[in-house]
Structures are given as structure tokens and as C-alpha cells.
Write a protein that binds this DNA or RNA. Sequence first.
DNA 1: AGCCCTCTCTGACAAAAGTCAGAAAAATTG
DNA 2: CAATTTTTCTGACTTTTGTCAGAGAGGGCT
Lengths: 299, 299
Amino acid sequence: MSNTSSSDLLNNAVARTRRFHRAVTTEAGVLDDSFLGRGRPLGPARVLNAIGHGRRDVTEIRGYLGLDSGLMSRLLRGLEDEGLVTVSPDPQDARRRLAALTTKGAEEFAAYDALSDDQAARILARYPRPETLLAAMDIVATALGIERTEIIETDPRDPRAVACLSAYYEELGQRLKTGFDVSLSADPEATAMMSPRGAFLVAISDGMPIGCVGLKGTDKGYAEVKRLWTAPSARGMGLAKRLMAVLEDRARDLGIGLLRLDSNSALPEAIAMYRSAGWTEIDRFNDDPYPDHFFEKAL
Amino acid sequence: MSNTSSSDLLNNAVARTRRFHRAVTTEAGVLDDSFLGRGRPLGPARVLNAIGHGRRDVTEIRGYLGLDSGLMSRLLRGLEDEGLVTVSPDPQDARRRLAALTTKGAEEFAAYDALSDDQAARILARYPRPETLLAAMDIVATALGIERTEIIETDPRDPRAVACLSAYYEELGQRLKTGFDVSLSADPEATAMMSPRGAFLVAISDGMPIGCVGLKGTDKGYAEVKRLWTAPSARGMGLAKRLMAVLEDRARDLGIGLLRLDSNSALPEAIAMYRSAGWTEIDRFNDDPYPDHFFEKAL
DNA sequence: AGCCCTCTCTGACAAAAGTCAGAAAAATTG
DNA sequence: CAATTTTTCTGACTTTTGTCAGAGAGGGCT
């Protein structure tokens, strides 16, 4: 432990971070050992799980797990001998190889998954009201993973998009004095927010959707930005700005020259962000009952 | 990843816990590798650090790190050969052995410590306003470490006690409409809260003080419970109750038969806890300006 | 003292993880 | 098309980690 004066004990950021790390790595012996729960060494278990999580490209897995090519090759061979995995050349580039789970391998992966779920549930069961802990875990996971957070384009009916949209509607309902009823607002049809008319983006952090934004094509000479939302755990990390930047790029790709959006004064963070991101406030351009602020940006 | 329906994606507690785990173990490759930053294998590095953190008893280190006696012996021998550690028989029980760092060993340990500090600082530097993240890390660390949390008896002037007391005064100042000035309240002298007249307890979680309580001996036929505080990150986990239970045991050991305490209606959680822990509300028994509730409990 | 227990150390292994160099196959480049 | 690069695979290691059984010294109890 570093030498810390008494006033530091509770406030020193580095000491707190290190204590967090100590707590988490000690507990990792409980959380993490699902990888050891099926009598297989860590190496093969990690490879099997990486494949189960959808990583197919051998080079990619090697990079992700930090393995030497020789070691990787042997681990794959072992999994093949066990009948859990098949490896075949990539049709695009026959030097590369793609791994896939066999039926037996998928079962084995599911067993690991069940072990992990059990362990997570066991940890949570220790806390009578785990909501505080879960919210804190979300913040930590989002913050630590912020650089790994991917922004993907999806169908707005994709479950990950729907999860974000539901959270968005619920939050609007709480924030607006009047409540919020989607059916009263202009709910874009899905196809208006899909290529080639528009786009829908979701931010994914370690597999969890933590933000979204939609671009709705119109026939009025501009496209509209809709449904910008970030998870509470992600706020203050610049995610909304990043979503908007990607969305503007996407709009340019689609040949869109002018963007508009509406917002509500109950969402001051959003309005401040639009101002700082180069949007200009304009007059009302629709008759939606909820918004009271309107913005425009030329691309 | 487990199959989760769309509504689960954001709210399923197990999925959130597993995502947290993924984020933390991925990042652990960044946080944790201070143990690998000095060209020594993990085993010896862990032993050296355990000794540096004040663990001297070889059996204890073995238990803490989960090492076989043979392996432990060889690791210690290696560190001795490097001139970092000396091992000598325990004078109390010559079967046991005690390890200590040499000067060189202490330097090496300090180097590991500096690496850890740097890594923690580097992680924090990524966040412009890390207070949210730090608060979340405190909550997670406290929750995961709640079963490892020790309650120790200290001098109330110990830095760990002082850290808690300062936080307590500051919080009282914020919570009481009138503010709080220690000098106007009955500030017990340290010796009144030390054996044999009283006691002072501090809860330590992974090296961080997260709660305290004092037992102040008087000559009026009762002892007073003073300065009960738990860190915000520890609230809702029953820590105050645990501190009180230990304090009551300690009071019984000291031959005290009656306890009293005062509190303020600005601290409703505390008052609810006293009621549920078998305390009876009584009339004012002092003229301290701050309290407005008074309790008593016979042991 | 005798007996049983605890703790450390050693030797002898075994398993797991990691390293390195070179061969073979496929893709890319000039 | 030849030269170069990328990727995987193999063999031949080394290092690290973990296991087991037994020896030896010390402690506690009757």
C-alpha cells in the first residue's frame, strides 16, 4: 500500500483505484473461475469461449487473448481432438483460418455460460437490494470499456436498438412534466431510419447497448436526428457527441446536406451538447407536441 | 453471452454482472500487470508484494495466495537468492517462519508500488471528471469486499480513525441545517474512547476505512455510543449494525451494563437502525446543542 | 519421555504456458 | 513471374506452476 496521509485515505483517487483493483481481483477468484469449472486448463477454455462469443478468425482470437501462434495452433488442435471445434480455411484468404464450434462444442460453451451465470447470480444473491451495486458496476464497466465501445448500425427493430428505445421512452416519460406517449409523437417507421433513407446507430460496450441515435430520411430536403439517448452509466463521457459525429458522417455518405432535430428544455444536457457541436437554433419546423427547441446543421 | 430478451439487455442483473466482469478482466490486463512489469514471474512477485504489504507469517501468506507449501518454499528461496527477502524462525514458535524484506527488497517492493500507482493514475487520467467513476468503484469494492471487512479496535487518533471522523464531521455539517461545529459538541477526549474506559472501532475494507463508532466511558453509570459513521459507499449493507454489535460485545467485556446515545432527526437511517436494534427512546440526558433524539439500551 | 501434531523443506514429477526458428501454403507486390 | 509478406503449423525447447510423499525440526499434551 502506498504511504497515504490520513486525509488521503478516503479521497486519494489513486489509492481508491488501487483498492478497487484489489477488491476486484480478490473477488475474481470467485467470479472468474467458471473457466476452471469444467476440468479444462485455462488456455483451451479461453479459446473455446472466445469462439463461442462469435470470434471466428484465428488471428483475431490470437490478438484478443495475446497468444503466440504456436501455442494457439496447439490449443486449437487440442479442441479439435476433443471434437469441440472445427477449423477451416477462410474462403476469402486461404492463409487465414476460421474456427467454429461443433454441436458438442456449443454444448460445452453453453455449460461454461451457465457456470458464469450461476456465479454472477451467487454474487448478487449476497446483497439484499443489489440495485445500487448494479448501477455502480454499470458505471465502472462503461468507463473502463469506453475506448472499446463500438458504434454499430442496426435495424431499429433489433433487440439492442429496442432496449435503448424503451429506456429512452421511459426516461422521457419521467423527465417531461406531461409524460410521454410515443403514439402522440411522430414515430418514424423503421425503414425511414434504415439505409438508404436513413440510419440507426447503437453504441455497444462489452456486449451491452449503452446509447443510440436515429437518422430519419424525409422528402422535405433535410433529414432528422431522432431518439438520441445514452445510458445513465455512460453520461459525462462524451458518448452522445461521438454518436452524433458518426451519424453526421453516415448522413454525408447518404448524400444528405441538411440535418434538423427537435428537443425539449427538460433535457438541458442534450441542448447544451447540440449548441457546442455546431448546431444552430431555428424556428419550430413541425407540430409535434413534445419539443420546444429546434436545431439545424448544414453538412 | 447468455441469451437475453431485449427487455433484459439493460436490466437483467446477471447479464449486467457478467458484463462488469468482462470489462474488469479485460482492463485487468492493464491494471494488473504491474506484477509483471519488473521481469519477474507472477509467483515471486505476488509473494514479494504480500511481504511488502506487511504479511510476515509464511503460513498466512500461503493461505492468502493459495500456494502449496513446496511451491512457497521454493519461491521464498528464490527471493532469498536474489537478496530481496530474509526468512527466519518465529521466536514464539520455531516451526513457523517469518519473512522480511531486505533493503533491496524494500526498494523492489517500492518499485512495484510505483508501477501500480502509475497504472491507476493512467486509468484515471482518461476521465475528465473521475468523481462519478471513483464513487462507483468505491461502492463495488465495498460490496465485493463486505465479507472480508474487518472491524478493528484503534486509538481514535489513528489516521484511519481520523479519516472517518473528519468525514463524519463534514457530513454532519452538510446534513444539519445549523451546520456542525465539533467544538460546541461534547468532543470526547481520546482516552475516554480507549480501553479500559471505552473503545474505538474502525471497519477496514481492503485497507480502506469505511466506518467507525466510539464507546465513551463516563462516571455516570452508563457509557455513551458516539461517532457512528459509515462511508456512503457502504450504506445499505448492514455495516452500522455490525459495528454496533461489535461495540456492544466490547462494552460487555469492559463490564458496562447500560449504553446511551444521542442522535439527530436529520439522520433518519441511524434512528431507524437504533430502533430496530433494540434501543429504547428516552428523555434528553445531556445539554449538547445538536441532538434531538436520545436512546438507551441495557446490556 | 512418548506420542501426535504442525510447519517447512526437499526431491521427483507432471502439467501448463510460453518461446523460437523454420517449413509450407497462400496472398500480395513490383 | 519472382520476390516478399502473411499466416499457420510443427518440432524442440524453457520456464512457470502445481502436486505429492516423505524427512526433519519443533511444539503441546499426558
